[in-house]
């Protein structure tokens, strides 16, 4: 207990934990995109299946998988706690809508986060739960055959539409992610901060655009 009797995480510690977990998730997204890009290779899914097989069997990756779940959990739990606290801090709200200039999309991190979380739940049901055998795979598809599973899902226009919308929203979430994380970690520099802001936007475009290329390839150009 400190001078003021505080027993929980401080504001800055909460933010730093969220930022660190978020940066870890940024790295994960890059790896995931790298593997998914193999879906665009025209070899009937051979290279994609090989990569997916490696990711689901190699022991070191299994450990990282646990770290990944931890990262998601930390980011989500602290996100919710901080958002609730922030709601409470202004019990009586303004009558007039705020007209203050803010960083692009920064006010909607919770909203975009919830959309991404819903997509994540869908994604778990469609892939992870089938892989671990909790959910039965669709008829004719073996539970480790991610390629056929992906092809089947993307042949459904509704699923592809949900997928595309989710990644647009994720793109906006990511646009604020890297630059907000560096600011929270105390990294602010007259020369590098503008570069990090640009890198943040570029990263968001690459991740969102890269993932979105896959359903577009399967639904539009098949």
């Amino acid at each position: 207990m400190g001078a003021t009797g505080q027993k929980t995480f401080s504001s800055i510690a909460s933010k730093v934990l969220m930022a660190l977990a978020g940066v870890f998730l940024l790295v994960f997204l890059a790896v995931h995109l790298g593997i998914n890009m193999l879906l665009l290779v025209d070899d009937g899914g051979k290279s994609f299946s090989a990569a997916a097989g490696f990711m689901s069997s190699y022991p070191v990756i299994r450990i990282f998988e646990l770290a990944l779940f931890g990262g998601f959990l930390l980011h989500i739990v602290f996100g919710v706690i901080v958002s609730i606290r922030n709601r409470w801090s202004r019990p009586i709200r303004y009558q007039h809508k705020s007209r203050s200039e803010t960083a692009p999309f920064s006010k909607y991190m919770l909203h975009s986060g919830v959309v991404v979380l819903i997509f994540l739940a869908l994604h778990f049901i469609d892939f992870y739960f089938i892989k671990i055998g909790v959910v039965a795979p669709p008829p004719g598809i073996e539970r480790h055959d991610f390629y056929s599973r992906a092809v089947l899902l993307f042949s459904d226009t509704t699923y592809s539409a949900i997928y595309l919308v989710s990644f647009v929203v994720l793109g906006f979430h990511l646009n604020h992610a890297l630059q907000a994380a560096t600011q929270t970690l105390g990294l602010n520099h007259p020369r590098y901060t503008p570069l990090i802001n640009a890198a943040s936007t570029l990263y968001a475009i690459i991740i969102a655009g890269g993932f979105m290329a896959i359903p577009l390839r399967f639904t539009l150009f098949n």
């Binding site: 933010k15 803010t102 920064s106 006010k107």
Partner: peptide, 8 residues
């Protein structure tokens, strides 16, 4: 509340 880097 806690800062969420909106820079308002």
């Amino acid at each position: 509340g806690f800062c969420s880097n909106t820079y308002a």
